[in-house]
Design a protein around this nucleic acid. Sequence first.
DNA 1: TGTGATTATATCGTGTACGATGTAAAATTC
DNA 2: GAATTTTACATCGTACACGATATAATCACA
Lengths: 155, 155
Amino acid sequence: MKTSQESLWLENQLCFPLYAVSRMVTKLYTPFLEKLDITYPQYLVLLVLWKEDQITVSDISEQLYLESNTLTPLLKRMEKKELICRERSKEDERKVVIALTRKGQELQKEAECVPTSIIEQFKSDDVKANEVVELKLTLNKLLNMFDRKLSEKTV
Amino acid sequence: MKTSQESLWLENQLCFPLYAVSRMVTKLYTPFLEKLDITYPQYLVLLVLWKEDQITVSDISEQLYLESNTLTPLLKRMEKKELICRERSKEDERKVVIALTRKGQELQKEAECVPTSIIEQFKSDDVKANEVVELKLTLNKLLNMFDRKLSEKTV
DNA sequence: TGTGATTATATCGTGTACGATGTAAAATTC
DNA sequence: GAATTTTACATCGTACACGATATAATCACA
């Protein structure tokens, strides 16, 4: 049984390795994304748009769990780089439709090598492939759980 | 076998749930930390200091994997809140020693309930306790691996 | 049909993160 | 022991995150 003091040790926390690994993985992407002149959150937006183009800000918001206060400035920066277009919907003037430009579409080909390059760096003697698979499964379960909790609170 | 297109789908990425869950867990802490008038990274600094007081900025940097460009302003804000003292070391004028104030020490008692409150929220029908343990183990392995890689590059 | 509630996005302020660079003290080298 | 290198922090600029709030368009319904 852990004492209440011990429960406050950094090495006993789950949250800390989650926070630290997340930042380190983002750093892994940086050299690859720099070549494409994009940041990691911008890459995530592109992943969403490459799957489905011409979607609203709130569609992106739902998929990435980022609010408009984060997305609006981020999307404006992507517009300035001419990766996307932002346009008010005709049917519903509240909505803003995000569409890939030619440049944004063409970036997909250049990005196709990124995922395997990253996975490569996860391989090591200590961390087996099946552990990484388990990690991803558990994280996705947690994500869905937190997602449900959030929507329950709104209702 | 995944196509190169499919490898760019958000749901096939490992990095994304890592990034999203990390942010969500930080949000879980917010209501608890707000009562203590601290942020999540400030809480991490306190965790380090509660274990070992009177350490240098680079000691904290090593444990949290945060550089001085992040820590210096963060520690200054904590100094303004009178949680810590920042003082140049007499032996080595380059070093800055961080020490808890009385207020910073006393905050520990109030924080002791936080870890269990958070763990409580991880429990769910979908995510079993042993999965959370596995998650933590794998994340720590990855953290150590990336840590080694970083130090190799410096050498 | 008007009017209050809801929705979709934007703005503002604060606090991280982090690459690049600066600076002064200490260590190393010649 | 002076010059060079390294170390320990600090500063600067840019880009997220996010709580709180604003605003305009749409919806709901009395």
